[in-house]
């Protein structure tokens, strides 16, 4: 079996007295979609934010291609090939598509001026490659649809050399057709074979459709892991509910 591109060993993250992650292990391989599943508050976003350099781990170690790494900032992580598409997408609403696409990594000409035309073109082409023909790269992101924003964020991560593409609930808050669009995008990225994808979702069908390998989190710990062959549907449903009774979830829903 190939070597994992990214490996996480016994990762612990505490926020003051609160243990968000209590010793998590994870391996992701290039050309695979690794679905990260678990209940609300299980710690999925915290885990990937730690991988992305937003949070520093309290203890534990991250390895990239077998070498231990320490990310002190999101810049470090993206330099190491970790491209993250956050749940909130990390897009700035008031700014244009292009300015968002290149945020923090602008193309500069002599004298530090922005190469606006070139950036407009790249932003347009990169989004076209994964499925959206976006006509006006000077449009503000605030006016884009949810699926378009997702595509923008994914295209951005890939363009800037992501070897690990982290997608935090990319299909939530989207219409049926746009959800399928995002899944197609994931498949297209997977087909390249050189990019490892971490895909967070609450949707069982989506994770079945694209997932090669699963890790289930509950209350900050891994409660199950395996490939798509190893885990059957029933097992999956149980683990996705954090091992808890489905009835509890229904009650939670009713309370809102």
């Amino acid at each position: 079996m190939a070597e994992p591109y990214l490996r996480v060993e016994n990762l612990v993250k505490q926020f003051g007295p609160f243990t968000a992650l209590g010793g998590v292990d994870l391996e992701v391989y290039p050309g695979e979609v690794h679905a990260l599943l678990g209940d609300n508050g299980a710690g999925k976003s915290t885990l990937i934010k730690t991988l992305a350099g937003v949070h520093q781990p309290t203890s534990g170690q991250i390895y990239i291609e077998g070498k231990p790494v320490n990310f002190r900032s999101p810049r470090d992580a993206s330099a190491a090939g970790i491209g993250t598409v956050y749940q909130d997408l990390a897009l700035n609403q008031l700014m244009s598509v292009t300015r968002n696409f290149f945020m923090g990594r602008e193309l500069k000409g002599p004298m530090g001026t922005l190469k606006m035309d070139e950036m407009n073109e790249i932003a347009h082409d990169e989004m076209l490659k994964i499925g959206i023909d976006f006509s006006d790269p000077t449009q503000a992101v605030g006016t884009m649809s949810g699926g378009q924003r997702q595509t923008l964020a994914i295209a951005r991560a890939i363009h800037f050399g992501a070897k690990v593409l982290i997608l935090d609930e990319p299909t939530s808050a989207l219409g049926q057709k746009q959800q399928m669009g995002v899944l197609k995008t994931i498949k297209r990225v997977r087909a390249r074979g050189d990019i490892a994808i971490i895909f967070i979702t609450h949707n069982e069908i989506h994770s079945r459709l694209v997932g090669d390998r699963y890790t289930f989190l509950a209350l900050g710990k891994v409660i199950g892991a395996g490939t798509s062959q190893e885990i059957n549907n029933e097992e999956m449903r149980r683990l996705m509910a954090g091992g808890a009774e489905m009835g509890d979830l229904e009650k939670e829903l009713a309370a809102i």
Binding site: P74, T84, D88, L91, F102, E106
Partner: peptide, 18 residues
């Protein structure tokens, strides 16, 4: 670009390395 990004959404800007 960084000035706009900082004022628009600080966390998004930070996450992108601004």
């Amino acid at each position: 670009n960084w000035i706009y990004a900082t004022g628009d959404d600080k966390e998004a800007a930070r996450a992108n390395g601004v």
